[in-house]
Design a protein around this nucleic acid. Structure first.
Length: 426
RNA sequence: GGAGCUGUGGCUGAGUGGUCGAAAGCGCCGGCUUGCUAAGCCGGUGAACCGUUUAUCGGUUCCCUGGGUUCGAAUCCCAGCGGCUCCGCCA
């Protein structure tokens, strides 16, 4: 969430930003409610002060009658306080409700537009789009022919959107994990296997909203636990409510987790096969940084994603995500879209990774702070996240780009040590 | 899952219902000392928020979390969560 003072002081800019992002929020109302709330808060504090004074004077008063009088007065003050406190709390709730709906501000260079059509391509990867001299298959067909992916059994066991990986697909999954983690560890990331479940407060802190009608999140009944949609949730939660020494920053981690998504309302979209599934494995980059580090680290994350996909020799492009397509917490977001030859008519770009600078938006809700040695007070951290590899989508890109005329599929060179072969055949 | 113990400041650890934001030690910061010398001495040292000022000063809140009792709660009561130990179960 945004800082309330900031919203009040920059109401026009915040309102404009909401509009750019296609978010409805009554900023003016928030400003008004917040002003009233502060007046109530002052009243509460003043009544508390008076009541405290009375309470302290009681111990010193020896005369029973006078003592009783002070007790009565103290009780009256507390009652009065409770009443004003309630009024304050109501205002607080209303203010918070509006505040929660306001997205992060946007980087000035972010293209302004309603949806992903306004995303701006900023560069392409090192590998050219392949030209095939034979009729190509999509990954679903390839997966079936080579006995790599079993959607039918997945549907039987857990419903549509689930699948079994088999044979070399399993080796590819493990190889991709190894590859990505090795790359990131070499770059100084701390590898972390995170819980696949997280408490509701942690989800809220990172900007995910469980249990709504449109929720993307699976929740566990009779508990406050939820299946995570990404390790971003758990990694962000690691510092929730904590204050770290600025000397330890930036903190860079790569998390390995399963990701679970309901994909409510996503039916009918281009989602054949592995593209939009309810469960997949993901290697996620995450960083806690000082405010003046986050801009550079976003570029670093993007470069690493490019490095990983260049290493796999998969063609991709990088887009600067438009205002209307940014998630609530993101200040700026880059997506890598890999070329997927089997998608649409003659191939399409499909999102494979995404990296965001969330500035202090998540940290404020998580209450994750840093302290500068030798100074008073604390400040909110910046958080960034980025996909290193989302296995399911990487599999699509590999199977479709590496397919060969005889029906076999080549294994990317960097994965061969773990897969143990150069080609996957029937 | 069951039983017992436990949860205080960056850490260790005192704490009688009122004078406790909280002893002491460690750590940290500043200064002094340089014949107790990989030391000694003195002083300082939590956070958020509100108001005032913007060098400051005043106030509110915070002793796991949430309720409750009370004029007043770190201290009493209830619930929850975490930790430790033992038992059961299990990969």
């Amino acid at each position: 969430m945004l800082d309330r003072k900031f919203i009040v002081d920059n109401a026009d800019a915040v309102q404009q930003n909401c509009q750019n992002r296609g978010v409805t929020a009554d900023v003016a109302k928030l400003v008004q409610l917040e002003q009233e709330r502060r007046e109530k808060l002052n009243d509460v504090q003043d009544l508390n002060r008076q009541a405290n004074e009375k309470a302290k004077s009681i111990g010193k008063e020896k005369d029973p009658d006078k003592r009783q009088a002070i007790i009565e007065e103290g009780r009256r003050l507390r009652d009065a306080k409770d009443k004003v406190q309630q009024e304050h709390d109501t205002l607080e709730k209303q203010t918070a409700a509006i505040q929660n709906g306001i997205p992060n501000m946007s980087h000035p260079d972010v293209p302004i537009g309603e949806d992903d059509k306004s995303n701006l391509e900023i560069r392409r990867g090192a590998t050219a789009i392949p030209e095939f001299s034979f009729p190509i298959k999509d990954h679903v067909e390839i997966g079936e022919t080579l006995d790599l992916i079993d959607f039918e059994s997945g549907a039987r066991v857990a419903g549509s959107g689930f699948y079994f990986l088999k044979n070399e697909a399993v080796l590819l999954e493990l190889a991709l994990q190894q590859y990505a983690v090795q790359e990131l560890v070499a770059e100084g990331f701390t590898p972390v296997v995170t819980p696949d479940l997280a408490a509701t407060e942690i989800l809220h802190g990172t900007g995910y909203i469980p249990r709504g009608p449109e929720t993307q999140i699976y929740s566990i009944e009779n508990s406050n636990l939820n299946l995570v949609a990404t390790a971003e949730i758990t990694l962000g939660g690691m510092l929730a409510g904590r204050t770290v020494d600025s000397a330890d920053l930036p903190l860079k981690m790569c998390g390995i987790s399963h990701c679970f998504r309901t994909e409510a309302g996503a039916a009918g979209r281009a989602s054949r096969g592995l593209f939009r599934v309810h469960q997949f494995t993901k290697i996620e980059m995450f960083a806690f940084t000082l405010p003046d580090q986050s801009t550079q680290i976003l570029e670093e994350f993007c470069d690493l994603e490019c490095q990983i996909f260049d290493g796999l020799a998969i063609p991709y492009r990088v887009v600067d995500t438009a205002t209307g397509d940014l998630g609530g917490p993101a200040y700026r977001k880059y997506d890598l879209e890999a070329w997927m030859p089997g998608r649409g008519d003659g191939g399409q770009w499909g999102e494979v990774t995404s990296t965001s600078n969330c500035t202090d938006y998540q940290a404020r809700r998580l209450n994750a702070r840093y302290k500068l040695k030798g100074t008073k007070g604390t400040h909110f951290l910046h958080t960034l996240n980025g996909t290193a590899i989302a296995i399911s989508r990487a599999l699509i890109a590999i199977l479709e780009n590496y397919q060969q005329e005889d029906g076999s599929v080549g294994v990317p060179k960097v994965l061969q040590p773990w897969v143990g072969k150069e080609t996957i055949r029937v």
